[in-house]
């Protein structure tokens, strides 16, 4: 098969010394694709950082590495990315340099190839030095897409609502089936979540508050029809089908007011809820210890 690049015409006899392109860039497109398809994932990620042209080439290829599940954990002291593949999953864990001057990896279920990935990452790589950088990168990647990303199940444990919301705005809420949010900080309120477009289309929502105040507090509901149903769900009714779970606070003093405060916030936020979904089933049970 002939290729244009194969028959490069000789350079014009200019005075400028020609900058020599590397052998990789001399390859015909099909050959380049074959070479890149044979390179392992982590090397591809590093290759993307070599130059813009190569990054664009790799991105255009849309390689499929069989990764079907990604979890990104970002906290002030740790950044962890878990990539799930067809037969195994592996975890890259990064600690902030200020806290631990090293990378630590943890693999729960692994095989030889994954161990190799992990050791490589442990030795040479860090995603980004700080959680903010990771958030920025993640947001940038998501915003660079032509369409909001389609996700079926989303679990978020956030410290700040601002960061969470900026990423959440890049997600197509209409495609989301299960959503679970946990706040580790009182700053994260549901007020922000209801600002997201089409958030009311999510069939299954689950909110968990900070474990600092209670062991956990879960509101789980399916296909709520109107605000009345929400009140039931929030425990403002004696209806036994209310879908509320409230576990025992860690201590008695002051905790109850916190839980009420949280419920008030939740109620206030959900008042703007205008769902056209029909009530199908209100599942769950109410527990209070």
């Amino acid at each position: 098969m002939f290729c244009l690049r194969w028959f490069k015409s000789p350079c014009n006899a200019d005075d400028k010394p020609p900058i020599r392109e590397g052998p990789m860039m001399d390859m015909p497109d099909l050959v380049m694709r074959k070479i890149v398809a044979d390179i392992d994932l982590l090397s591809i990620l590093r290759l993307r950082r070599v130059c813009h042209a190569f990054r664009n080439f790799i991105d255009d290829m849309k390689l499929d590495y069989g990764i079907n599940h990604i979890i990104v954990d970002i906290s002030p002291f740790m950044i962890r990315v878990t990539l799930y593949k067809l037969s195994a999953y592996f975890v890259f864990r990064y600690f902030d340099m200020d806290v631990v001057n090293n990378c630590l990896l943890q693999s729960i279920k692994t095989d030889d190839g994954v161990v190799q990935y992990l050791s490589t990452m442990n030795k040479n790589c860090r995603l980004k030095p700080t959680a903010d950088d990771v958030y920025d990168s993640l947001e940038k990647i998501l915003k660079s897409r032509d369409h909001p990303i389609h996700i079926q199940n989303m679990t978020v444990a956030a410290f700040t609502s601002q960061r969470f919301l900026s990423v959440a705005r890049c997600i197509d809420m209409k495609k989301l089936i299960n959503f679970e949010a946990t706040s580790f900080n009182k700053e994260l309120t549901l007020d922000g979540i209801v600002e997201l477009n089409d958030w009311e289309c999510i069939p299954n929502l689950k909110f968990m508050n900070s474990p600092q105040f209670f062991e956990y507090y879960t509101i789980f509901y399916n296909h709520l029809a109107d605000e009345d149903e929400l009140h039931i769900a929030l425990g403002h009714s004696d209806n036994s089908t209310a879908t509320k779970q409230l576990k025992k606070p860690l201590s008695s003093s002051g905790i109850h007011s916190e839980s009420l405060e949280f419920s008030e916030k939740l109620q206030k936020s959900l008042r703007s809820f205008r769902s056209h979904l029909t009530l199908q089933e209100a599942s769950g049970s109410s527990r209070s210890h």
């Binding site: 052998p23 860039m25 590093r46 070599v50």
Partner: peptide
């Protein structure tokens, strides 16, 4: 490409910088 830094990859594969 295994275990190489981006700069090493650039040299090995002869990829020009931006």
């Amino acid at each position: 490409a295994k275990d190489k830094t981006p700069e090493e990859l650039r040299i090995i594969y002869g990829i020009p910088t931006d």
